[in-house]
Nucleic acid binder design. Structure first.
Lengths: 343, 343
DNA sequence: CCCTCCCGTGAGAGCGCTCTCCCGCGCGGT
DNA sequence: ACCGCGCGGGAGAGCGCTCTCACGGGAGGG
């Protein structure tokens, strides 16, 4: 039990006013220096910067927001299932990319969980003018409330949103169809012919596109693309799908799994049954996530540059916030096949 | 190319003033209602609330902060390695708990990455009065910059911080020593005698405490606690540790792994070598994370109520922010053994 | 040599709230 | 009847910044 007061007394931090006085100029001039206006003489800039450094001045965000009606913060809108979101390595590195790029700007990230509560707290938050823009990730269809955000602030989607969510959405995405095709063609190139796929949820464009790529490649090869099951982008889900696939078609020799995390689930099932990879079944994953190298054998996988995607998403949003008139709506980042041992 | 202007024009949202006029009262009264002051007559409260609902009024956060010098936002300070942080299921559910509790309050989470950049952006951010309080997670020692935050705002640690970081830190933690002991005693109770452990990093109290619990239990049983290796809380790290342990002592019959994620790494090595679990080696993990049920067999594990911890961390911080004079510094949440198939 | 223009700077009006006063009214005590 | 008190509500002064506008002075043109 200490004798200090529990209340943290905030010794008043220096204001613009104080800096102005110290530098012998007006508030307006200090403000100009802080905001990098070119219309200030060099020596004055230096004097002000010296005063700022000496006083340890940090602009008051609230005051700045109030006066300029720009908050300098952007919302990271994540879906209800926070733990699913954060548990996924893809999003982990997406967020890393986001953050890195954001760190170079003066914007701050507000973590907003878009839950389906009756009063739409997240929507009210964004509509309430609390952020200048928003980044939406892992967007399943059914989140119609996003429509309520249209036109309120610029929104950039990490991954292409479902049609109908937004008239002309800004988004960053990889070419998932090409990725699915790439993976499947690699398996075909290896001579595999009885190829199955474990897809992600049907309500996510990313997983449906990868599936489309799989189908296209199989079609082109004149093979049936009937061995399809769904794993919900989780390892247990994929394990269950793997068991079902093996039941239907025990002689599979190739498998395309729409995420590395799911691939770990599938691999576990295979290992348990003594099915050898890649000897018996060659496997290609998707994401090039850390999970791809967790196992005893490296997973051949389609590289989604998730960190780059995060960074790009921020770039797009910042350009939008900067008033750039010709930001492309679709921002596609490249996909690549990383060949390891599993296929 | 649409004809709309790229600039998102913000139609001015209603202000307190507007609500006051609509309800036929003064700004002050509306403010009282919004902030739940008891000194307003019931009928007036209703009239104001009606006006608020009709106008769709949302308080302007910036103005509020400026006037009250409270920001109503709290920083979630995460360590540099964002992807490690987010990739860990424990933190995922910790964050879920955080968020759920926070959603009930009017506070907002600011994601601040505490990187070791030269100008300490994170420190400046917090010191700049941008948040009312901070939550620090995954705190390794070596983050001495936290010292610069002492006394600036209330800080609550998720997990006990290293000694020396803060004179008298507020923290929420599980009793990791008890947890390590619990796990080890379970193995002993199963009749296992040649028990090893894969510990976490040596610079984290949580992992050192679990190790201490392991040692204590072994000592009490009169057994040597020499089979110790370290896995850095990652699956590949644990896999490497497992291989080393087996090399040194191939006849192990029990294993305590300090995290479920690491346990998955160890299990993979065991599976690859045909060592059966639990028949040959019984394994107890730690965290009761989703990873515990990913495998073919369920992992017996020590349950860390991570979501509860997140929620509790917020509780502690909110009490601190509320000026509660007697918030305990150490907040210990209970630990529990979840028995599945692996031991 | 005067007028115009621009450039660097200062003055000052808000931005939308909170919060301290202060006022008026109705009640109870003397 | 008077005074005091408490309670509900209003008035108004900021909070720390941005931004428009005005202003003084030097350069350039006629």
């Amino acid at each position: 039990m200490s004798t200090v007061t529990p209340r943290h007394t905030v010794r008043h931090p220096p204001t613009l006013e104080a800096v102005a006085e110290a530098a012998g100029v007006s508030r307006a001039t200090v403000s100009r220096v802080v905001n990098g206006s070119p219309r200030v003489r060099g020596e004055v800039v230096e004097a002000v910067q010296k005063a700022i450094a000496e006083l340890g001045y940090v602009p008051n965000r609230a005051a700045r927001s109030l006066a300029s009606s720009r908050t300098h913060s952007i919302a990271l809108l994540v879906p209800e299932e926070v733990s699913r979101f954060f548990g996924d390595p893809y999003f982990a590195s997406f967020t890393t990319g986001l953050d890195r790029r954001l760190a170079a700007s003066e914007y701050v990230l507000n973590l907003v969980v878009a839950r389906d509560d009756p009063d739409r707290k997240a929507v009210r938050y964004v509509r309430g003018g609390n952020v200048d823009g928003a980044i939406v990730v892992s967007h399943h269809s059914g989140h119609e409330f996003l429509a309520q955000l249209e036109g309120v602030v610029p929104i950039v989607f990490g991954g292409r949103p479902e049609a109908g969510i937004s008239a002309e959405p800004y988004f960053v995405d990889v070419d998932n169809v090409a990725g699915g095709r790439l993976a499947t063609e690699h398996l075909l190139g290896l001579g595999r012919r009885r190829i199955a796929t474990i897809a992600g949820p049907v309500d996510m464009t990313a997983s449906m596109d990868r599936l489309a790529g799989f189908r296209a490649a199989m079609d082109d090869a004149g093979l049936p693309s009937t061995a399809i099951d769904y794993g919900n982008f989780t390892a247990p889900g994929a394990a269950a799908a793997m068991r079902r696939l093996l039941e239907e078609q025990p002689d599979l020799d190739g498998l395309f799994v729409a995420s590395d995390l799911m691939a770990t689930g599938a691999l576990r099932v295979l290992a348990a049954r003594g099915i050898r990879v890649p000897d018996d079944i060659a496997i290609v994953g998707y994401d090039d996530s850390p999970a791809a190298t967790w196992g005893e054998i490296g997973l051949t996988t389609v590289s989604q540059p998730s960190e780059l995607m995060g960074a790009t998403t921020v770039d797009v949003l910042l350009r939008l916030l900067g008033g750039d008139p010709d930001v492309p709506h679709a921002n596609i980042v490249p996909t690549e096949l990383i060949i390891r041992e599993s296929a």
